[in-house]
Simulated scan of single mutants.
Amino acid sequence: MRLLIFIVVLAAALAFGWQQFQKWVAANPEKVPWTPLSLAHPIGPFTAQKLGGLADDTPQCLTLLEAAKVAHTPLPPLSADRCGYDNAVTLNPGGAIAPALAPADPGLSCPVAAALTLWERDIVRPAAQRHFGSDVARIDHYGTYSCRNIAGGSNRSEHSTANAIDIAGFRLEDGTRITVAADWTRDNEKAAFLREVRDGACQLFGTILSPDYNAAHADHFHFDQANRMRPFCR
């Protein structure tokens, strides 16, 4: 009889614990690896992994952009000399991405677009407010799709499939301009801001390269969604 009572009490305790765990997961879906990705969720330890998984599920990726009200236009597939894409979109003015991208309407893979949405909303804009008390009006970039090899190598770059973007700098609403080329090596708020947004990108992209990596990245951040077990962040 005592054994039966013990088993009943133990089962009740486990059931109660499981219910509490389920409630915790429901309140913190970004903190466990098996919950579906939503761009409405905060960034969590498994967000980069979930974003990377979108490479094999373009319809789901497009659904996430729609749900997050990211203004975008799917691009027709392109194939040319070991280059091209079948999951690219253009990010259009307006919608959830508040700062304009310059040049405008870049075409990039859907997983990069999804990661860029979270980076802009949860990393870049809060960092600009903390360091400068101003919002970001524009994000300058050096491009996305380019049919070429990795510099100095024979393998195709992630740019060859529109799976990368090179970020050059930022212009704030108060007119302040911040560039990787001019401000990375300084000891001021601009440099601190650049390091914060670089580090934040390490939670979202597969590859994150900055001036700390090599001289070829002295004037920009390279972000891509290469398939990796864990992000490569330098």
Rank of each mutant, 00 (worst) to 15 (best):
D81R: 12
I97P: 01
N92L: 14
W34D: 13
N214W: 00
D174Y: 05
P29A: 06
P59E: 08
G206P: 05
G53E: 12
I123Q: 03
G200E: 03
G53S: 13
Q60C: 02
L14E: 13
A113I: 09
A226Y: 02
H159S: 07
A40N: 13
D105P: 00
H220P: 04
D56C: 00
S79M: 10
K50M: 05
I97K: 01
F16K: 10
G175P: 01
G52F: 01
A181T: 04
G169W: 03
G94C: 08
D187R: 13
R82L: 14
M229S: 13
H41V: 00
A80N: 14
S109L: 07
H131W: 08
V89W: 02
I167Q: 05
P103G: 05
M229D: 13
L75S: 13
R230G: 02
R228V: 15
R2D: 15
A216D: 15
D212W: 04
D166Y: 03
A114S: 14
Q20A: 14
D183N: 15
T207N: 11
F193L: 09
D187E: 12
C233F: 08
E158I: 05
A192M: 10
A216Y: 14
S134R: 04
A226T: 10
V136F: 01
R177V: 15
A102C: 02
S157Y: 03
N163Y: 01
P33R: 11
G17R: 13
L116K: 02
Y213C: 04
F205G: 05
A127P: 00
T47Q: 09
D187L: 12
N214Q: 07
D81E: 14
V124S: 02
Q49N: 03
Q20I: 10
T185Q: 11
G52A: 08
R177Y: 01
A96S: 11
I5L: 15
T179P: 01
L118Q: 07
A15F: 14
A13S: 13
C110L: 03
D212C: 09
Q19Y: 13
V180W: 00
M229I: 11
Y145R: 03
L118S: 05
L14H: 10
A201S: 06
A162E: 03
N92C: 06
H131I: 02
R230T: 12
R195K: 15
I165H: 08
T179A: 01
R156F: 14
P106A: 06
N87T: 10
E120F: 03
N188R: 08
E66W: 00
G206Y: 08
A115T: 07
I43R: 09
H159M: 05
Q20L: 14
F205Q: 04
A181W: 05
R121K: 15
W34I: 13
R82D: 12
T90R: 15
A151S: 11
K50L: 06
K31P: 00
S134M: 04
P231I: 11
P99V: 03
F170T: 06
A151D: 03
P99Q: 06
N214Y: 00
W184S: 06
N87L: 07
A27E: 15
P106Q: 02
P36W: 11
P93K: 10
L10Y: 11
Q19L: 15
P59K: 10
P77S: 13
P99F: 03
P76R: 11
